[in-house]
Each structure stands twice: as C-alpha cells, then as structure tokens.
Amino acid sequence: MTTVRRESLAEQAAEILFDRIREGEWEVGGKLPGETTLAPQLGVGRSTAREAVRILAGRGILTTRQGAGVFVTATDAPANWTTALQRADILAVIEARTAVEVEAAALAADRRTGGELKLLRVALDERGRHRGDIDDHVATDMAFHRLIVVAAHSPIMLDLFDGFAPRSHHAMVDMLRLRGQYGDEADHGTHEEIYEAIASHDPAAAARLTRAHLRALHEHLG
C-alpha cells in the first residue's frame, strides 16, 4: 500500500485517492469507504483523509451526501463553471498584483535599506523552507512579496497590497491546486533573482523579473 510523505499530506492523499479512482477501484456512483477505513489506507489521520475528500470534491471528483457517505461523481476533473469562475478570479488577482508589485520592485531596488534587505533575505529563506504545504507556501511567498512593497517606501502601494492580500492568498492557493505542482527549483530561483536585483540596486531588472514571473502565472491560466 502506497503511503504519503509527511509534508503536504492532504494534497498528496488526494492525489493517491484520485489515482485509485482513475484506476477503476471505484466506478462513477460508487461509494468510498468511511474515514476510519480510508485514512489508514492512505497512511494519514482521519482529519487529513477528510481534507483529501474535500479537495477532490472541489474538483468535481467526489460528492458528499448527508447521511449516505462519499460517492464518485467523475473519474476526471470536469471543466465546469466553478472552475471557470475560479480561474477568472485568479487572473484578476494576478493582474492586480502586477499593477502594484512591478513598480514596487523597482522602487524597492532603489530605496531599500540594509535592514530591509536582511529581512527580505530571511523571508526568502523561509519561503524556501515551506514548499511542501500549499497554505504555508503561499503564506511565506506573500510575506516575501509584501516586504518588497514595504521596501518601496510607498504607503499607498502597501495599503493596496494589504487590501487585496486575503483575496490574493485564497486565489494563489486555488491556482496551485489547479496546477497540481508548486514550489519547484525554477520558481524559487526566480524569487532569488528578484532578491538579487533588489540587493544590487537594479530597478529595471527587479521590475522585469517581477513582471515576467507574474505574466507566467497569468499565461498558465489564461
């Protein structure tokens, strides 16, 4: 029996469960075993198994019927209205982030202090240590980008960033779930390059790298 690694347990459990569904262990309309049976099969606790079911329900693979149990509704994620609306919201957030963060990166490269650069380095290292769990990854990623806006010394930009931060967090989590992968070396390397541009007082490079990073996210979903 395949078990999951300790990081990102719910996501990994969801993928293992999805694989079993696609392999035909349960047909459409079939009922999954209860949490007490399913959890040890996945090598996780009941709460994690419950979260894995919720993730697949969000993709349209499973449905929970009150008092009856969990049933398979599809063997592949459907392209439905929920997904379409989810993508639209993510794209809108990325556009808003681009409007604020590209200019903020340029200003940060010009205006950042030595102390702010040290904090940015700490935030980047923290981001690198939290690439296994979606929520932790997004939280540390946003902390890094917020510090760039802080280093821009533009109170209005910071107000704008903080204003849509909760929506941005949810949208980024949704985006990574749609992508199915996140936190790879290429992605983290891009953030290292943004940091280096700011450290080197290179506004043009900081803006260019930030725009390219956000454009790549946009194009992936567009």
Rank of each mutant, 00 (worst) to 15 (best):
Q41L: 15
A109W: 01
L158W: 08
L17A: 04
S200F: 05
D125P: 05
L158H: 06
A92W: 11
R87I: 15
R208V: 03
R131F: 04
Y195C: 01
L217Q: 11
M157H: 14
G183N: 05
R22M: 07
E11S: 12
T210F: 00
D141P: 01
R22L: 08
A165F: 12
A212I: 05
H191A: 05
R129S: 14
G60E: 10
I134T: 05
A197I: 02
L56F: 11
L117P: 03
T2N: 10
R46Q: 15
T37D: 07
G34M: 04
D136I: 02
S154G: 09
E23A: 15
A52N: 03
L85G: 07
D187S: 08
R179I: 04
I55A: 03
A186R: 11
L119S: 12
G189A: 10
G58Y: 09
E193A: 14
L221Q: 03
Q181E: 12
L158Y: 09
L120T: 03
Y182W: 15
L221E: 00
T63W: 04
R87E: 13
L119W: 06
P33R: 06
M1E: 11
A52V: 06
I94E: 01
D141E: 12
R20K: 13
H145Q: 08
A96Y: 10
D174T: 07
G222R: 15
V70Q: 02
R46Y: 08
R211T: 03
T73G: 02
E126V: 12
H213D: 12
A106C: 04
A216C: 05
P203E: 00
A171K: 01
E23N: 09
R50I: 08
V53N: 13
A105V: 04
A106S: 14
L119A: 13
S47N: 11
T3E: 10
P155K: 05
T83H: 10
R22H: 06
A204Y: 05
P40W: 06
H188W: 15
I94P: 00
E103K: 13
R129E: 15
H188Q: 13
T63K: 15
E126Y: 07
D202P: 02
L147E: 04
T113I: 04
R215L: 13
F164N: 04
D159K: 12
P33Q: 10
D135Y: 06
M157T: 04
H145A: 02
A197C: 09
R59M: 13
L32H: 02
A13F: 02
V44Y: 05
P33K: 09
A57P: 01
A96F: 12
V122I: 14
E95Q: 14
W81C: 02
L120I: 08
A143P: 03
F144K: 01
A152C: 06
H169D: 09
V72L: 07
K118P: 00
E51L: 08
A212S: 14
A13R: 01
A49S: 14
G69F: 03
V28Y: 08
G132E: 09
A216M: 08
R50L: 12
G180T: 11
M172E: 11
A92S: 15
M1A: 11
